[in-house]
Amino acid sequence: MSSESATAMVEVRGVHKRFGRLEVLRGIDLDVRPGTVTVVLGPSGSGKSTLLRAVNHLEKLDRGYVRVDGELIGYRQVGDKLRELPEREVLKQRTRLGFVFQNFNLFPHLTVLENLVEAPVGALGVSKERARARALELLERVGLADKAAEYPRRLSGGQQQRVAIARALALEPKVLLFDEPTSALDPELVGEVLDVIKDLARTGTTMIVVTHEIGFAREVADTVVFMDGGVVVEQGPPAQVLDDPQHERTRAFLAKVL
C-alpha cells in the first residue's frame, strides 16, 4: 500500500462501471481523508450516484477497486484477481458504511425507533436494550426524540430524512454516504436536513455527499469533486473549484446552477 493511500479513509482507484452499452464510470480516482467532508457535484447522468453506490458495493465494479479504512470493499485479492466476496461478507462490510438515500427508504411498517434498532440488532447482534438506548440518543441528536413511536409516513419529508440519517448512524459507521439527501424534499424542509449533516461534519464524521446544494458545498465541504461524463473533471477545496474553476465544463455547470 502506498503512503498516500494509507492516510485515506476511502480510496477509489480506476473504477469503471457500465450498464449495458452505457459506460457510467470511466476510471474514477478519489481519496477521502478521515474526518473530512467530500461533496460530489455534477449534472444528472454524470455518474455521481453510481460512484457513491459503488463505494458500498450496491453496484458491482467492472474494473478498479474501493478501499475503506484499508479494507477492499466487495472483493478480496486472490493473486492478480479481485474475487467477489460472498453476500454475507459484503453485508458485514456495509455495517461499517452508513448510506442515506434520496427517497429515505425508511421501513414503513416499523416505528421510527424500530427502524433505528433493526440493523444493530439484526446485523451486529447488539442487545435490544442497548440498541434502543442508542437509538433514543440519536433521535435526540436529530431533534426527533418525541417521534420515536410514530410510523415514518406520519412524518414530514424532512423529519423522515433525519430519521434515515439517525438510522445510518445507529451502526456507528466509519463513513457516511449521502445520495442527494435533499432532492426529494420541499424547499422549506431542505434546511433542517442540511443542518443535521452540518452538525455531523463539525463532529468530524467522514462523509461523501452527492448533492445539488452549492451553498452547502461551499460552507461544509473540505473537498469539492466535480464529475461529468463518468470522470472526475476537477477537485479541490471549495474556494478553488466553485470560485475559480479551471475547466470549461465546471464553469458551464456552475453558471447553470448558481
Partner: peptide
C-alpha cells in the same frame, strides 16, 4: 428501495425477507 436500504444496512438476507419484505 426497501431491499436496497436493508442491504445497505447490512441486514442478513433471511432477516431482510422475514422482517422487511414479507410484512410489507
Amino acid at each position: 428501495g426497501q431491499l436496497e436500504a436493508a442491504a445497505a444496512l447490512g441486514i442478513p438476507r433471511f432477516r431482510q425477507a422475514w422482517r422487511i419484505v414479507l410484512p410489507q
